[in-house]
Design a protein around this nucleic acid. Structure first.
Lengths: 195, 195
DNA sequence: TAATAATTAGACCGGTTGGTCTAATTATTA
DNA sequence: TAATAATTAGACCAACCGGTCTAATTATTA
């Protein structure tokens, strides 16, 4: 059985908007990519905006979950779980090339449309609190601010992925985040009970 | 004497493209913001693209210089000069709200237009080597990779500025980069000859 | 099989896009 | 002041934008 129309549209729109941006993607481009008539598209979605908001909820949000949903092995320090997640990003070619899809849409749409900024914020907060949750169960040095550390990790990965894509490569990403990893190792409690 | 037409256009285009993006900014918006007729605009610039490339060279590039052109006081460690530059970013409201203009244009245009990615890369490299130059004159721990450290600093600041603008504030930025600053202090050579 | 609902098909719409072009006006130089 | 160049002014253009609408077709249910 072939993919339902709605799902096919969401996939195509995700890819187009990811690479070309919201304003850089036209309905005709979407129609061509999906190879469906206009009637079918507007039967599924009321407008272009509704369509991309659905992409946020049904394509981008799950991706954000996926990348920070590492299971914790009980012999590791929680920080090592986080480091593994950061390193895993390097295996996704499209992330290295185009950056984080949430961050991209955030930068383009948040300043000009509150419906977008609201939806993006929900996804961002969920990601942030997942990291906070992991950190709060871990042995860290006393004076570490877990909330800002969580944001710092996200900011660093987003930033590392957005450096001039002309030179984007796995090696460069890993070199850049090696400093984050050094810092995270610094932050572990000296008395590590988990080993 | 009033501002020359060309400069007036570049200022208006910078602001519009900074906030709305390239594809979110139309010629009619620019015309209205400048309050000049179309003939004058196309007399100065051959096309919208040429106009925004000029904005990159004549508005964005100087801004990037400005923000990392801190003079080094000889009683400081070079790392402290860098930290001061990172902190100074917090005083520019528009940076906190909309992020780095170079990074924004980079994310929107680099994947779809090599003329943009080329120009952006030149500005990025200049910034990077300015930081490398500062770092190479400083007393750091032996095993520090200066090249990737330079990119890490840029990535972190860019990332910290791009976190969900719904909540952007000076306090949040400072909290986020406090981790970068901790890390940078870590990296100073234990034997600091500059004090 | 008949009736009904869901989907497909694409012509069509007013508005806007980036861009051109000619004519009038202003500034500069001879 | 006359001649020439630079600039201003905005009507106009084809192409494209996001979106609507009616009719035909296909799936589903009775």
């Amino acid at each position: 059985m072939t993919q339902p129309t709605r799902e096919k549209i969401l996939d195509a729109v995700f890819t187009l908007v990811y690479i070309k941006g919201y304003n850089g993607t036209s309905m005709s481009m979407i129609l061509e990519a999906c190879n469906i008539p206009k009637g079918s598209l507007y039967h599924c979605f009321a407008s272009k905006k509704a369509m991309v908001l659905a992409v946020l909820k049904e394509r981008i949000a799950p991706r954000m979950d996926q990348f920070y949903d590492l299971e914790h092995h009980c012999n590791d320090h929680e920080i090592d779980t986080l480091i593994a997640a950061v390193l895993k990003v390097a295996d996704k070619q499209e992330l290295l090339q185009y950056g984080c899809p949430l961050n991209r849409l955030n930068q383009e749409m948040s300043p000009v449309d509150t419906d977008f900024s609201h939806e993006i914020n929900i996804i961002y907060e969920k990601l942030k609190y997942k990291i906070i949750h992991l950190l709060s169960n871990s042995n860290l040095q006393k004076d570490v601010n877990i909330d800002s550390l969580s944001e710092y990790i996200i900011a660093t990965v987003w930033g590392a992925l957005s450096l001039s894509p002309q030179q984007s490569s796995k090696a460069r990403y890993l070199q850049t985040v090696s400093h984050l990893i050094s810092y995270l190792n610094t932050i572990k409690s000296d008395i590590d009970h988990s080993v």
